[in-house]
Write a protein that binds this DNA or RNA. Structure first.
Length: 201
DNA sequence: CCCTGATTCGC
DNA sequence: GCGAATCAGG
């Protein structure tokens, strides 16, 4: 494959959007992430900083969102299991601030947290983008439904269901580099906080 | 081990 | 210019 105009444009676009080199490579096809990175450098856009003088936030690690995939604007409906969907409102901004939010599969009871496991905080009302939620709904269907003992460093530790019930499991999908959750769950766990914090304070 | 981008260097 | 191999980090 060669770097045609179109391909370069897509590359630029995706890179600018903060997509990872591997994602871009995957999208383009026929090239490796190395090729993408190499091209990026040659194009001189190694730094994704916006253009302003100030150095923009480098937070480029971990892909925030999926690619341009045809996604049905399906809205998350009711959950099968005890997966309670938190309230959603407002859309999120882009700044990947890592504001911790809580898992939604919130057991009303004291969550049984595995000792030593970096499990998430308690449930609390928070804003989660509809997209993130939709994604979660999707992936939870594919969840490996692991038990506590089956969790590993690379399995999503997002709890689903009520720990007090038999219907309880951990997502178990491959985690995002570093994070304790899979991409989808990272999406709802770490929200790009942006909405105004007016809500009675 | 999975992943990320950055650099090097033969082609 | 290209990109695999390598490096440096999370």
């Amino acid at each position: 494959m060669s770097w045609t105009d179109e391909r370069v444009e897509l590359l630029k676009k995706m890179w600018t959007e903060g997509q990872s080199a591997s994602q871009i490579a995957k999208e383009l096809g026929g090239v490796t992430r190395n090729a993408v990175i190499g091209k990026v450098h040659r194009l001189g856009l190694s730094n994704r900083s916006g253009g302003g003088g100030a150095a923009a936030a480098p937070a480029a690690s971990a892909a925030p969102k999926a690619e341009a995939k045809p996604k049905p604007a399906a809205k998350p409906a009711a959950q099968p299991a005890a997966k309670a969907a938190p309230e959603v409102e407002e859309e999120a901004d882009d700044e990947p601030r890592t504001t911790s939010a809580a898992p939604a599969g919130a057991p009303s009871r004291k969550a049984i947290v595995p000792a030593g496991q970096p499990l998430p905080p308690q449930p609390s009302a928070n804003e989660i983008s509809p997209e993130a939620l939709a994604k979660v709904n999707e992936i939870e269907k594919k969840a490996k439904k692991l038990t506590l003992m089956e969790l590993t460093e690379r399995t999503c530790k997002w709890p689903v269901g009520d720990p007090a019930t038999e219907k309880f499991w951990f997502c178990g999908l491959p985690v995002q580099a570093g994070k304790p959750y899979c991409e989808a769950h990272v999406g709802v766990a770490f929200q790009p906080m942006s909405s105004r914090r007016d809500r009675r304070r």
